[in-house]
Design a protein around this nucleic acid. Structure first.
Length: 910
RNA sequence: GGUUCCUUAGCUCAGUUGGCUAGAGCGUACGAUUCACAUUCGUAAGGUCACAGGUUCGAGCCCUGUAGGAACCACCA
């Protein structure tokens, strides 16, 4: 086949991908199914599984509903390189693709589209909505899969797992049931992060804290002087939270409507949220605070209401902050919630799930938005003379990470996982070193996070997700039966158990709860059945979801399977724009990976995005690096074009041996390259592996070896070395290497299923000789560049067999008109560095002009010599440094001295 | 407040258990051209390795501190 003059990726990529897919190359050689047939999976009953034969990696499932972004591009580049590398290494490699229902993300998109047609989610039942979103996702799906194909992902499409697939749901329910039975699931009324726009709760991790400017107001709470010793908390009936009608608050028997500002004393509290005042159930001062010690146990009147609330002592009150007095609103603040628990205070909820004030705020305020209410409260307080001050401050405010709405801590009954045991299990495995992290530092970060982990709220109030398999008793009279039952019949809204009716809980699971099962569901893990693909060899994902995902996979994985879900974790950082800025729509600096693939080809994109990247680090990325990737592809294409040309002309012998100059050398260089790439892949040093291949192909194979082969043609070696290069680059640039493979006149099959190269044989002495030729050529080139006349001059050689034997090659590489014998009469400018008997045949007056350069060179070498001498003068160095280094220094001194001698001699001639 | 990371050429980054004169790509300057490739080839300039101490025969690398930057967690009434 004829090679075109340049490589055009666009024409070939889809065709190549289709051929790979059709050939079955993406499927693992040893399938995991049928799951119960252990013998077909190489399981030896005696020895168990030989893990070194398999390689498993899962794709962090992209949103089924979306397009791939640059982060996915990086993910595929990393994961597919690993997959293809281990496939070439002979493993049964299984790269399992996935698609994420992306609960909340997709829901937000869908809800927006509902809004557009003037509908609201509240017009439909949950099941209706679920069906609608399913269709919506189904329509959009496929996009993402096409894009993964364009990126060259060699994943097993037959095994694509969708996060709502039956087996996923079944597994999630099994785990939930196990936890329920183990007492690790509880329903609790707690403060949860609540977005009033999306009307759902979030896990702590889904909330974004932003520093914002705000106000700190000081509000006077009048002290009730005729305080009896009636205790607030005793007056309240025990039980769960109190809905806030204020009934439990002690009524002021003789409270005057108007507070006399002048004559009465008051406690001044500091607050950023005056609108929650109606939910106050106490004010707290620090027990150490001398200013307020006498007031502890007394009561104050809650402004704008007739309620009286106690003054309590609690460490939470910071003496330094504001006035040192803090209002306690357990239903709307996390700290206050805890204070409330410590002091057994009621919880008065004043803000509803729609973000509007509840009746508990009183008739004047109920129904207002929190913002309107704040304004009115402030105005009313001012009128009554109770607003004592305001101060601008900066504080962190929680926002919904999707819509930016301020997150309201909301009192809600939700399902929680008691994470204590889970975290403990995970920490134990991590500390045993069962999972290796890249970068290593992330392990510490993870353990630290797990140590402080709070219980996990897994309820979400959105229809798009896996239904929580819990049913609540309808009939309160059936006292013997449990309030809640676990049941997997979540397709029903109502079930009957033991003659008692139960209603389905309408909430769905936090997406991360189901994603935590990913490694086991993707690999079809079944209890008691040996599975060569579980644990995964590696989990590759973004460092930003270390806590949300990686932590949870480990906890759930160990809890369910008793094994860590993966042996290694590679975390990639963010892809930043070329100035190191985070990409965002608002900044307009978003790079679309598909555009780059279209423009430069998939390989160029992959090579480009891997360049300069290291584990866990955010890294800048620009089109430039893709251009350089494209250039490498074209270079390789032309290398192949030349090789194919040479071998087709001259193809009459078959044994592959090294015969001529440069051949042992290239074998050595390729072998060094191979070893380095192997080591780099073992350590997930992708950028270094690419770098090594780049310079080996370009600077060594093309620039030196192929140039030498234009003179000495060794077809078998050319074939073998080219194949080796192609195979080694294949994991990173799959398309161009396959395109070349298909185009070469002698190759068979496909490169994707070839074998990784074995060690090459070569003669190190001969390899070293070529190194000398390179040095002579380099010196000649550099010198010719600066002397008058440039390449006009010939090169002469004296008693130097290496130069004599390679005269033609040196002539070609330096571009001089001739390389010939000096016939026993050395003259001109000596190429002295390598102690070769080679001279640039330049007249004396040109050499004279070179004098200054020569003198400078002598000085430079002299400085190097001095440094080496100084080292040898140090007795401690000679004494303590390793012998080979000392010898190296000694040799270096001899060499430098000899070089200076040669240069000085040259100077004398002038 | 806690945890972690980063600071090396104009830019983006390598530099693996400390070991010769600290590297690459891009960019810059100069030069080349019927030859596989202008998506090319050659040559060069460009660095107090953030700073200050310490350990060591020897430090970009290890230790301590300082400065600057970033991320995450918790909190900010």
């Amino acid at each position: 086949m004829k090679f075109a003059k340049s490589y055009e990726p666009g024409d070939k990529e889809p065709e190549i991908y289709a051929a790979w897919e059709a050939s079955g190359a993406f499927r693992p050689k040893v399938p995991q199914y049928p799951v119960n047939d252990a013998s077909s999976r190489g399981v030896d009953a005696e020895k168990g599984l030989d893990q070194s034969k398999y390689y498993s990696i899962v794709m962090p499932p992209p949103n089924a509903n979306g397009n791939l972004h640059i982060g996915h591009g990086l993910t595929v580049a990393l994961e597919d390189s690993l997959t293809r590398y281990y496939r070439l290494r002979g493993r049964s490699a299984w790269y399992i693709p996935g698609a994420d229902h992306a609960g909340f993300e997709t829901w937000v998109v869908y809800e927006k589209s509902l809004e557009k047609i003037g509908k609201s989610r509240f017009e439909y039942s949950r099941d209706e909505l679920y069906a609608q979103v399913w269709d919506f996702v189904e329509e959009q799906r496929g996009n993402m899969e096409l894009q993964l194909r364009a990126l060259g992902a060699s994943c097993a499409w037959d095994d694509l797992t969708f996060t709502l697939d039956e087996n996923v749901v079944a597994r999630v329910y099994k785990t939930f049931e196990k936890m329920w039975n183990d007492g690790m699931i509880y329903r609790g009324e707690k403060l949860v992060n609540y977005c009033s726009k999306h009307r759902t709760a979030f896990a702590d991790i889904e909330v974004e804290h932003k520093d914002e400017k705000g106000m700190l107001w000081e509000i006077a709470y009048p002290i009730v002087e005729d305080d009896s010793n009636q205790n607030f908390s005793e007056a309240r009936p025990s039980g769960p939270s109190l809905r806030a009608d204020g009934a439990q608050a002690r009524r002021s028997s003789a409270s005057s409507e108007k507070f006399d500002v002048e004559s009465s004393s008051a406690l001044v509290v500091s607050t950023t949220r005056p609108e929650t005042l109606f939910g106050d159930v106490a004010v707290a001062v620090n027990p150490e605070d001398e200013r307020y010690k006498d007031l502890i146990g007394k009561h104050v009147r809650l402004p704008l209401t007739k309620r009286e609330i106690p003054v309590i002592a609690d460490e939470h009150a910071d003496m330094e902050y504001g006035t040192g007095v803090v209002k306690i609103t357990p239903a709307h603040d996390y700290d206050d919630f805890e204070v409330g628990e410590r002091h057994d205070l009621p919880r008065v909820q004043v803000i509803g799930e729609d973000g509007l004030m509840l009746d508990a705020a009183g008739p004047n305020y109920a129904g207002l938005t929190t913002e309107e209410c704040r304004k009115k409260v402030l105005k009313d307080l001012k009128e009554q003379g109770l607003l004592r001050g305001e101060k601008k401050i900066e504080h962190a405010v929680a926002h919904c990470y999707k819509c930016g709405t301020v997150i309201e801590p909301m009192l809600k009954e939700q399902w929680f996982i008691d994470v204590e045991k889970l975290a403990e299990l995970a920490i134990e495995r991590l500390e045993k070193g069962e999972i290796k992290f890249f970068p290593a530092s992330k392990k510490k970060v993870l353990v630290n996070y797990l140590r402080g982990l709070k219980d996990w709220n897994i309820s979400r109030q959105i229809p798009w997700g896996i239904a929580i398999p819990m049913f609540r008793k309808v009939n309160e009279d059936a006292t013997d039966s449990p309030d809640w039952v676990f049941d997997t019949r979540t397709n029903l809204t109502e079930i009957e158990v033991g003659g008692v009716k139960y209603m389905r809980d309408e909430d769905t699971f936090d997406t991360w709860f189901s994603s935590a099962h990913w490694p086991m569901v993707c690999t079809d893990w079944v209890e008691g059945v040996p599975n060569p693909y579980y644990p995964l060899n590696v989990m590759e994902t973004g460092a930003d979801i270390l806590f949300a995902w990686v932590a949870r996979m480990i906890m759930i994985g160990v809890y369910v399977t008793g094994e860590v879900p993966f042996r290694e974790v590679y975390l990639h950082g963010l892809v930043l724009d070329e100035h190191g800025q985070k990409m965002s729509k608002s900044k307009g600096n978003v790079i679309n990976p598909m555009e780059l693939v279209t423009k430069y080809g998939s390989d160029a994109f992959r090579l480009g995005i891997l360049r300069g990247r290291s584990a866990g680090m955010n890294q800048a990325f620009s089109e430039n690096s893709v251009v350089s990737g494209r250039n490498l592809c074209n270079k390789l294409w032309n290398v192949a074009r030349l090789v194919d040309d040479i071998v087709s002309e001259d193809d009459d012998f078959d044994t592959c041996t090294t015969l001529n100059t440069g051949e042992d050398w290239i074998c050595r260089e390729l072998d060094v390259c191979r070893e380095k790439v192997e080591l780099d892949m073992l350590n997930y040093r992708f950028a270094e592996a690419v770098e090594t291949l780049y310079s080996t192909i370009w600077d060594k194979y093309a620039d030196w070896f192929l140039e030498s082969q234009k003179i000495y043609r060794n077809s078998p070696l050319l074939k073998k070395t080219l194949e080796m290069i192609l195979v080694m680059l294949h994991p990173f640039a799959p398309f161009v290497t396959e395109a070349i493979w298909q185009n070469l006149s002698w190759t068979e099959d496909m490169i994707i299923t070839q074998k990784w190269p074995a060690k090459l044989e070569y003669d190190p002495m001969t390899a070293g000789e070529f190194e000398r030729i390179r040095e002579v050529v380099n010196e000649a080139r550099a010198t010719l560049q600066v002397i008058e006349g440039g390449k006009r001059w010939k090169i002469l050689y004296g008693d130097d067999s290496l130069v004599a034997e390679n005269a033609e090659l040196i002539c070609k590489l330096t571009g001089v008109p001739a390389v010939e014998s000096c016939e026993g009469q050395p003259r001109g400018l000596r190429l002295a560095t390598m102690n070769s008997e080679a001279y640039l045949d330049v007249p004396e007056k040109v050499v004279a002009k070179y004098r200054a350069t020569l003198e400078e060179k002598i000085l430079a070498v002299g400085r190097e010599l001095d440094a080496l001498n100084a080292r040898m003068m140090n007795p401690a160095y000679v004494d303590k440094a390793p012998v080979h280094l000392v010898k190296q220094t000694q040799d270096g001194i001899k060499e430098k001295q000899a070089l200076i001698e040669r240069l000085k001699k040259q100077l004398e001639v002038i």
